[in-house]
Each structure stands twice: as structure tokens, then as C-alpha cells.
Design a protein around this nucleic acid. Structure first.
Lengths: 258, 258
DNA sequence: CGTAAAGTTGAAACGCATCAATGTAAGTGG
DNA sequence: CCACTTACATTGATGCGTTTCAACTTTACG
């Protein structure tokens, strides 16, 4: 890792993401701008967090793509999730437990570091922010569940299609989709396979199928979804799990509710 | 659902579970005892929570076995996790979002209901309790991740073996394993298949394999793990993801840290 | 240009799904 | 108490989706 100068306005993706989870007043927004204390630029294939480490900072992806993974005893590596701009790498800090998975940069990644102490202090004075973080954690859980569904109940075409829909949606939420269809996805087919439980060869063939049907195009790490509705239909994608659901007469952590 | 008389000392599994996540003083314990306001007995195959509902109560399994699941567009049903005695059915309440999955009783289940308002009030005065709940949520996340790993990277024998190891461990943690090896698991082979992404027939053959090797026995919903170490080895089971890891200089939500 | 990394293709094998039948045990009603 | 029913477990045959292996092609890049 290479240390950088202090935060510029590079934390906008964090603000954008949190804003999609809760509405904030000006003081909240100011607090969010001050959250990131340090920015670190990580090269592709460098580790951002290592399993078991007891970090005292929360890592946020500000730019680039990262993944969580775990090495399995049979020698394979399973990718359990991705973090795009605006995403927290690991929510372990919420329960003051250590990091349970390693996080790897898949492209050059700009990481924002927030000290845990600082964050708890700020969250104390800004309950809205706390709610937004908890919602982000809840969505993280939903992402895992949806991956379980893919791996357990969907075939290769559905898995790949669903994955692309999800990325399309998530990147769109932070303004990284051009013209409503095109976005960068710096992943090799092997890496897609490690996430979706498919061999590299089969990912390749599956992508070809989707291309032949003019549903997507994908070259050089650039995906273009030619038929958004078609892709969603064919993969059973329903974005609901990605957005905070209806407000409930809610649970509150400080002085007020969501 | 059939409403029951007020809580007896049937909430002990909840206390037992939370105690494994954080140490409590007497006042905390008293608070935990007063947490469950209502007990409801649910028959096997009745729904405990329905997807999309905006419950104002948190549901805890006090006795029996339940599962979370989602219906997939291709007609299948994917079980995404199980809740045993002491487990919270759904952590959606933490982010004041609705319930994102349905929860189904797989055996007669005694459900404890805690009103969300009550819980936030109690958590406010008992930060230890809050930490324990957040840790339970973190373990819930770990369970999902481990299921992703099973579905993505393990073959049938490993999946079933790993699943049995996990249940053995989780039930052991709340005192439901007899003689260190035997426990009730009121699941059909079809249901195991729905959780592990295998057909019923293949679950059957996989269990036979494990029986032939004298690693387990399983009849009438009673599992006996004859070779605990062997089962863990063969399935790559490592209990770490089930227990709160090292304390970190932690994140605090109220006045003090973990 | 030359080399390495990623993508593509074909052939063969395998794990697991599917279908369909049979077995077994535990109710249920006459 | 026995015939009937229902739910679940078991078994065999067959086929598909996916993996594996190995070669080959293309692209990126110094």
C-alpha cells in the first residue's frame, strides 16, 4: 500500500451511497465528509484486509473493485462478495470482532480509512448515519443470501445473468453506469467463476451464449447490457434485495428511529 | 399460530446463546429475562415470518427448528439458513427495514416475541446486550458466507458433512447435543437438499456414503456423529466462523466498548 | 516484436439431476 | 386389527450440465 495525501473530495461515492440509504441534513453531510481520515491507494491484487486481523479502521472502497474471499481446504478459492465504490469492505467492526475474510483489490483501488473510535463518536451524534451503516450491513447480508440462491438454485446462464444485473444496479446507484447500460467490470472470467461456482471454461461459454442472444456485450473489462429487461427476466433478477425496504416503526439506537 | 400464557423460564436458550456472545452482569441477565414479552407456539410447516411484512417484533426461536427461505423464479425453493434454539429469526429490525425472507417452522417451534421498541429501550441501558445482538448478526452473516462456500466450492459429501458439523456445533452451544454426539435434526432429506443445492436422491446417496464409512448415523430425525474429527476433516469444517473472534479495540454504540 | 495473461475451442469424463419405481414405517378409519 | 393412506427413504437407469484437460488464439504490454 502507498499512503496518499489527505482526503480530497474523493469521498463523494461514500456520501452518494449512504445518501441512498437514508436522508441526511447538512450537519450529517458535513460529518460524512469528515469521516475518512486517510486515503490509501492499493494496486490490483494487493490485499486490503487480511483474515483474522484486528483492524482499528473501517475500510471503504472509494474507487475501483475489490472482493472478499476465503481459501477452502480443498485448495479452491471462493469469492463471497464484491465491493464497489461506496461499499464498506467488512462490517466486522459493528460487533467488535475481527475480520473474518480477506479482501483483495481486483483493480487499482482507492481505499478510505475511518478509525473505529472516530466512527462511533460520530455515529453517536448522528443517528441517521448509524442507521445508514446498519442498512448497508443489512444489504450486505442480502447480497450473501442472494448469492446462496444463485449457487444453490440457478444454472450457469442465470447465475451470470443475475450477477451482471446486480453489478449493473449497484454501479448505477453510485453513478458508474454510462448511458444506462455500460459499466467497467475489471474481472477475468476465472474470477467470475470463483464467485459463481463455475469453471473458467464454462463462464466463457455462458458469456458467449448471452452475447449471441444480443443481451450483453463484454470486452476488455467493459460490460454493456444491451437488453436490461431481458437479462433480468432470464436470470430472475429482482432488485428489491438491494434497496432498503419500507420503513418500519423502527428500532432505534440512539435517540431516534429510522 | 396459537397464543400461549406468559413466558415461563422457557427463555433460557436465549440467555444461553447471548451469554456465549458476551459476558453479562446480573442486571443484564435480569434484563434478558424480561425481554420476551409473548410466547407463541407454531406448528411444523407454519410460517413464522413472511417476506415483506413489517413486523414490530423480533422473533426468537426458543425451541424447535426453523429455516429461512426464498422462492426462486424458476419454481425452486432455496433454504438460506436455519434457526435453532436461541437464534433470532431475522435481523432486519437492526436497520429498520422490513423482513426480506420468509421464516418457516420445520418442527413445532416455540417462538419468543420481543417488541422492537422494548428491545431498543433495553439495549440503550444495557450496551453489553446490544453488542451481543450485533455479534449474533455478525455470526448470521458468517453462516451465509460459509453456505456460499459450501455451494460454490464443496462437493456433495463435503456439503452434507459440513452441514452436519455446523449443526452439531450450534446445537452443542445451546446444550442440545447428547453425549457429545447425538442431536435431533427434524429435517427430511428433501429439505437438506433445498439448503445444500442437491437433489433429494443425491442427499440420500451422500448420507449413505457417510453411514457406510461409520462417520455418522441418521434415522428418524436423530443424527449421531460417530467420528466428529473425521467428519470435520472430510468436510473442511473449522468452527471459527461460529464463535466471536478476538476482541478488538472496539466500536461502541453507547457509552462503552465490547 | 516477444512474452505473458486472458480468452476461446473441442473432446472426454464425471458429478449430480431427473424420472420412475419400490420399500418402509407410521398413522387413519372401518 | 387389518386395509388403506400418506410421507419419507431407497434404488436403478439414463441423461444433462458442468468440469477437466489440453491445445490454440487473441490481446496487452514492455
Amino acid at each position: 500500500m502507498i499512503d496518499e495525501s489527505l482526503p480530497v473530495q474523493q469521498t463523494s461515492s461514500l456520501l452518494r451511497r449512504l445518501s441512498s440509504l437514508h436522508s441526511f441534513d447538512d450537519r450529517d453531510v458535513a460529518a460524512i465528509h469528515g469521516l475518512v481520515e486517510r486515503i490509501v491507494n492499493v494496486q490490483a491484487y494487493e490485499e486490503i484486509l487480511r483474515e483474522g486481523s484486528t483492524e482499528s479502521s473501517v475500510a471503504v472502497v472509494l474507487r475501483g473493485l475489490a472482493c472478499r474471499f476465503k481459501l477452502v481446504s480443498n485448495g479452491k478459492r471462493q469469492i463471497t462478495g464484491f465491493a464497489v465504490a461506496g461499499d464498506i469492505c467488512d462490517f466486522g467492526f459493528l460487533s467488535s470482532s475481527g475480520v473474518t475474510q480477506s479482501v483483495l483489490a481486483l483493480s487499482p483501488v482507492m481505499v478510505g480509512l475511518i478509525s473505529v473510535n472516530r466512527l462511533s463518536a460520530v455515529a453517536e451524534r448522528h443517528p441517521h448515519l448509524m442507521v445508514a451503516f446498519l442498512r448497508a450491513a443489512a444489504i450486505d447480508q442480502s447480497l450473501s443470501n442472494e448469492l446462496v440462491i444463485s449457487l444453490g438454485s440457478r444454472n450457469a446462464v442465470e447465475r451470470v445473468g443475475h450477477f451482471l444485473c446486480e453489478m449493473h444496479y449497484r454501479l448505477g446507484a453510485v453513478g458508474l453506469v454510462r448511458g444506462g447500460r455500460e459499466f467497467d467490470l475489471p474481472l477475468t472470467q476465472a474470477e467470475i467463476g470463483e464467485a459463481l461456482g463455475l469453471s473458467t471454461v464454462h463462464v466463457n461459454r455462458t458469456l458467449q451464449t448471452l452475447r449471441q442472444q444480443h443481451i450483453i456485450s463484454m470486452r476488455n473489462g467493459v460490460v454493456s447490457v444491451l437488453d436490461v429487461a431481458g437479462l433480468a427476466r432470464l436470470s430472475g433478477f429482482d432488485a428489491q434485495y438491494l434497496s432498503p425496504i419500507v420503513e418500519t416503526p423502527g428500532f432505534s439506537l440512539g435517540r431516534e428511529a429510522g
